[in-house]
Write a protein that binds this DNA or RNA. Structure first.
Lengths: 336, 336
DNA sequence: ACAATATTTGCAACCGGTTGCAAAATTTCA
DNA sequence: TGAAATTTTGCAACCGGTTGCAAATATTGT
């Protein structure tokens, strides 16, 4: 159909064996310069390029990496996909993108990715349960869980941040600005990132006897969810002075709700986000937020994946990167 | 290494031939119920699932679709990737994501995608020259250029909008609101979408003798580029009353610049965008814009791709979807 | 110039499946 | 019940490459 040139035809044209052609195209193989030139000439004339899938059959390596996620409504994930695809490409790996939105069962995706013999899988999500990543490990395919839950006994490789510490950091930050009545507006209750941020948040609150804290959840990491939850909160008799939102996009939704109700930020209500996505720095958003070093997380995830390709049974580790507050316009300045 | 179960082992366990196992897993094949049950039992016990890549070798179909783009800084593309990946998955196709940022030469990507024997390629970009899509056609791989340039003599399948008509529509819209001094703030000059929108814009301006029009370009479809160009324009002695920006993200950048200069929208300056991405509807953005029906464009692109898999030499067509203005807060209301 | 050594090449089997064809088994019908 | 028609099964070759091994060729040292 597609008239694709095969190795055999190149061999015939060059008047050499098929193995010779194969060797000319695999570096490190034993080929003389003369032979290589002869083969390359024939290949060029025929427009040949080797079939990566056929060769994977014998080499056992496809250079395909499953990139699975379910965050297609959080703008930070555009940055995530950009960094992942470029990083993988730069190392000669190909991302097979899997959209897990609405998928509750790891089975299907595991099966599918095994059918395509991916060399490894990157699970890029904090809203997918840890069991999802583990399912890949159980199927004996190397897996890195980026933005996953850090645990003292990691079952799979995790690269991300310390979400509990972020929760604590948020409270310290709000406390330093003199807020006495604060709240956590989390993402979906089932997301490990939400759970951990909340638990760090509450842990730190316990250290500040004068601070009153509350919490509630949005049902997704999305603008609409944040807006909806904040509208609900504003209908309650006495809302908090400042909110730590579990994500920037949630924060932006909350900001929208607050302004719609005629309140002003940061004077009436303060907002602290988490992620520091590109958009949060835009002047029309200007969100004070905790920076998550996604560039480093992704680079490190890829390096870890590459290392695992050589050493599949590598002992699992967690790579945790520190976060820090970036000061913009949605939180009052610190009063000294 | 990965202890993967092969068809041969299933055959041995079930006590049947290898072909029998193969047939049990391809629907439409001639197998008795008894045989199928026997094979399925053995397969289940062994945890077998067929190797899609190996079978592609003989069937000539990988069900892999290259999804190539270079728009990783325009939030609308998160929606685009979401819709494409889900749409492809729903039809049993797998998106192989290719990030063409910084890539100027189609050669590499064509070669790479051929090595992986993709069944087809979707080029999702209006900032990639038409030659990019054509390179795939020349390599005899089915290609659909989504968001591509509509031409009366299409060389490849194009699914998108009539960009010239959008330009005209923008002028009519601004004229109807009584603006006499308008301008087009385009994306990169090399993007066909920019060229066409500008040419439609100018064409329509010629129909309105009282209207004065100018135009300039941002160097990318991104927030920063839009903001930067608008800041530059505001330094000129007399800027326009209303701008048609070639994209929503550009518009948002422009809004940020305008407000930073202490001007108000839409009273001092009006902005009309194009795309109607999710974010444009957010209350803190609230952009008046021309809606591009991306959902329909993507559904149609996928349907076209599926059709081409059966009929690779299908006569090229252009599928054009109408756009329409969605009224929000960045343009004065029409004065009757 | 010749033997010893090192490098390059081709043969043939294999990777994990699919498929045309003919033999074997089953069903249909008289 | 038996022959004809139909369905199911297995054999063997093939898809496009890779690789261990032995034969062929080239290089080195004396």
């Amino acid at each position: 159909m597609t008239m694709v040139v095969t190795l055999k035809e190149v061999a015939e044209r060059a008047g050499v064996s098929r193995s010779a052609v194969s060797r000319a195209f695999t570096d490190g193989a034993s080929v003389s310069d003369k032979m290589r030139r002869k083969v390359e000439k024939a290949a060029r004339e025929l427009g040949y390029s080797p079939n990566a899938l056929a060769s994977s059959l014998t080499t056992g390596r496809t250079k395909l990496i499953g990139l699975v996620s379910n965050n297609f409504h959080n703008p930070i994930f555009l940055e995530v996909f950009d960094l992942f695809t470029r990083g993988l490409q730069d190392r000669g790996l190909r991302p097979l993108l899997v959209n897990l939105t609405d998928e509750t069962d790891p089975e299907n995706s595991v099966r599918m990715l095994r059918q395509y013999s991916v060399d490894g899988v990157v699970v890029a999500s904090s809203t997918l349960p840890p069991g999802f990543a583990k399912a890949f490990r159980d199927a004996r395919v190397p897996v890195v869980h980026s933005f996953g839950r850090y645990s003292s006994a990691p079952q799979v490789h995790v690269v991300g941040i310390d979400n509990m510490e972020c929760g604590r950091m948020a409270v310290r930050e709000l406390a330093a600005r003199g807020h006495k009545k604060i709240a956590f507006l989390g993402g979906p209750e089932t997301a490990t990132s939400t759970q951990d941020r909340l638990s760090g948040f509450m842990q730190e609150v316990a250290q500040h006897p004068k601070i009153k804290a509350a919490y509630s959840y949005a049902n997704a990491y999305s603008f609409e969810a944040g807006r909806h939850e904040m509208l609900r909160l504003l209908e309650q008799p006495n809302h908090a002075e400042a909110y730590f939102c579990g994500d920037d996009v949630l924060s932006i939704g909350a900001l929208s709700a607050i302004r719609e109700r005629g309140l002003s930020v940061p004077d009436d209500i303060g907002i602290l986000g988490l992620n520091d996505m590109e958009m949060s720095g835009w002047e029309n958003i200007n969100l004070t937020t905790i920076h998550q070093p996604i560039r480093q997380i992704i680079t490190s995830s890829i390096e870890l994946m590459v290392a695992m390709l050589d050493e599949p049974d590598r002992y699992p580790e967690a790579r945790i990167f520190p976060c820090s507050v970036v000061e913009r316009g949605t939180l009052k300045l610190i009063t000294k």
